[in-house]
């Protein structure tokens, strides 16, 4: 098992290298000369040349790349021009907000998609099956930012049930000490249930928005995987052995259908990371998505690059975790290692 984990971590290194190469190439493809840009409009040619040497832009591309990789590995991701703070610091303070939102959205998606998929798979061709299919087709067709606005309009403006789409906490709430950075956990740790409730209310609509988007692929995959497993011989054996129906479905079938689900979950996680940017904009959510948007609009390249790199690294880790989950779930894979 340990050997498998180590080997899988080693196998993630080429992916990380790919991520670094792409971010490096994108940084080089930037329009204009960064040195001229940094020096400002009134700089002399000597000053620009000086900056170019400081940045290492006069060196050959391969050497620049090695410099870049070593900088990134040492945690030196440059400074954000807009805020004057190191990019790593900016990203670390904002990442928990994005992750909290992503996890909440995925939690909702899984909580709805699993029952939906199981219901349709156990009753193929029934009314429930058709309704589930329509819901999931609608789910993939809705642009995330539009779902978000629609939810805001209905639940904030029309019904008044939800708070204004303005960040993670209402202005009046006192932010708890940051332990994990996840407000839902920190407030509980601080024993501040009032703020916890406020945070739950605040995260509900954005999480729903992400969840609706993530629901469709999960529901489809659950249905397909369950249908396949339910027609297998061992399920027939379980049925003829007169095992209770719930046990057949939830214990025998679901565990066997779980592996393709983990793969889909990893893929959906990547979608949601991308969709996060849009949802964060709609709900003024102070995560790395809205940070990246500000950076994009002010041409703050170090910040954009940091954001892309963070996303790439996150996704490599998500893939690593889904692989490990599959191994934990399926002893057959373990035997082949």
């Amino acid at each position: 098992m340990l050997r498998f984990i180590l080997r899988r971590i080693l196998a993630a290194i080429p992916n990380l290298a790919g991520v670094l190469i792409i971010t490096f190439l994108l940084a080089r493809a930037l329009p204009g000369d960064p040195a001229t840009y940094l020096a400002g409009p009134s700089a002399s040619l000597d000053a620009i040349e000086q900056i170019r040497q400081n940045l290492g832009l006069d060196k050959p591309l391969l050497e620049q790349f090695i410099l870049y990789v070593s900088d990134m590995c040492r945690g030196d991701w440059g400074t954000s021009w807009a805020t004057g703070l190191p990019v790593t610091e900016e990203i670390f303070t904002r990442l928990p907000a994005s992750l909290e939102l992503t996890f909440a959205g995925l939690f909702f998606a899984v909580a709805v998609a699993l029952p939906m998929g199981i219901l349709s798979a156990t009753r193929p061709g029934s009314l429930i099956d058709h309704v589930c299919r329509i819901i999931s087709t609608l789910g993939v067709s809705l642009p995330t930012f539009f779902t978000g606005l629609l939810l805001v309009f209905v639940f904030y403006y029309l019904l008044g049930w939800a708070p204004a789409p303005m960040g993670r906490l209402p202005l009046t709430a006192i932010e708890p000490d940051a332990v994990t950075g996840f407000l839902l956990i920190d407030t509980l740790l601080a024993g501040d249930f009032e703020t916890f409730r406020a945070a739950v209310v605040q995260i509900t609509l954005p999480a729903l928005t992400l969840g609706i988007f993530a629901l469709a692929p999960l529901a489809r995959m659950t249905r397909a995987a369950m249908l396949q497993v339910l027609s297998a011989d061992f399920i027939r054996t379980a049925r003829t052995s007169n095992l209770p129906r719930w046990k057949i479905i939830f214990v025998y079938a679901l565990r066997n259908a779980a592996n393709p689900l983990f793969t889909t979950l990893g893929m959906v996680f990547s979608f949601t990371l991308g969709a996060n940017v849009l949802v964060e904009k709609v709900f003024s959510w102070p995560g790395i998505g809205s940070f990246a948007l500000e950076a994009l609009l002010t041409s703050d390249y170090a910040a954009v690059q940091g954001f892309v790199l963070t996303m790439g690294i996150l996704y490599v880790f998500v893939n690593l975790i889904t692989d490990l989950l599959q191994v934990l779930n399926d002893p057959r894979i373990r035997m082949n290692i």
């Binding site: 991520v19 990547s270 990371l273 991308g274 990246a292 994009l296 892309v308 996303m311």
Partner: peptide
């Protein structure tokens, strides 16, 4: 390598 990124982020 392309698939190593969330695709919308890569497009951005």
């Amino acid at each position: 390598t392309i698939m190593a990124f969330p695709l919308f982020v890569l497009a951005m």
